[in-house]
């Protein structure tokens, strides 16, 4: 069913999904998806809207738990352990698998408090100095430090859209996650802000396993090394980004990439 390109290097998968199906009530939103997500690369999920790519992304840190009617079948492993097993702690999981949303959602607090929120609730910093250091480091990694270092006490909501999104990325980085999930992080941003986020993703690549959902094929081509194509709740094809875009094995992938539907 799913075509997985066979020329992928054998790497240690950070996360791996095995026959994952997701239901909303009786409706099957994701059908038997299996995929390995490596640490070394940026993985992009592409596909027409409503294909389930965002739903699948949310299963990776169990954010779909917040939707009462959602139900997941199958197995998703993080470092070899099923995150849906009964003993799994959701709080710890989400601290390890961070998420950045489609629309920037900074808390209505100061820039500093936005970043410090995660370390504070998880108790990752002892004392103000350490917290300051985490805030500075996270903002630097998110490429926002130079722009906001003089106004850390300003409200996070006062920043521009692109800055807000980088703030959200910095917020996710502050707890040192192992995986960062990004759900169409640039869809609400202008091209210049988008370019900055893409640069940032390239810089973070390698340090964290990154999964990005995008509806823009160009963006997938620019930022990712691995691409999975979703269609109608199924993963149709998965392989190197270059292969998917230049030499797709599946007709549906071909049609989507050449713009026959979308």
């Amino acid at each position: 069913m799913t075509v997985v390109h066979d020329n992928l290097e054998k790497t240690q998968a950070k996360m791996s999904a095995k026959s994952v199906s997701v239901f909303y009530g009786d409706k099957k939103a994701i059908d038997e998806v299996s995929i390995d997500i490596p640490t070394e690369y940026v993985t992009a999920f592409i596909g027409p809207s409503g294909c389930g790519k965002s739903t699948f992304l949310r299963t990776l840190n169990r954010m779909n738990d917040t939707i009462p009617s959602a139900r997941v079948e199958g197995e998703i492993d993080l470092d070899g352990q099923d995150i849906y097993r009964s003993g799994m702690d959701v709080v710890q999981l989400r601290a390890r698998v961070g998420m950045v949303f489609q629309k920037p959602n900074p808390f209505p607090k100061s820039i500093y408090d936005n970043i410090a929120y995660g370390p504070k609730i998880h108790g990752l910093a002892e004392g103000k100095d350490e917290l300051d250091a985490i805030v500075e480091k996270s903002l630097k990694r998110a490429g926002l430090w130079e722009e906001v270092k003089d106004r850390l006490q300003d409200s996070g909501t006062a920043l521009s859209g692109g800055q807000q999104q980088r703030l959200c990325i910095a917020r996710a980085i502050a707890v040192d996650p192992e995986v960062i999930l990004m759900d169409e992080p640039c869809s609400a941003l202008d091209p210049i802000a988008t370019a900055k986020i893409e640069e940032l993703i390239a810089e973070l690549n390698g340090r964290y396993a990154i999964v990005i959902v995008t509806h823009s094929m160009q963006q997938a081509a620019r930022v990712s090394q691995r691409t999975a194509f979703f269609h109608l709740g199924k993963m149709v094809e998965y392989g190197r980004t270059s292969d998917i875009f230049t030499n797709p094995h599946e007709q549906r992938t071909q049609d989507y990439i050449t713009g026959r539907y979308g």
Partner: peptide, 23 residues
Amino acid sequence: AMRDGSLAMGATTSETIRRVLVP
């Protein structure tokens, strides 16, 4: 989105309520 943002950071429900929703 506020609630999701906080939960996605690994905050518990009560932490989300006390530190994000109520403020």
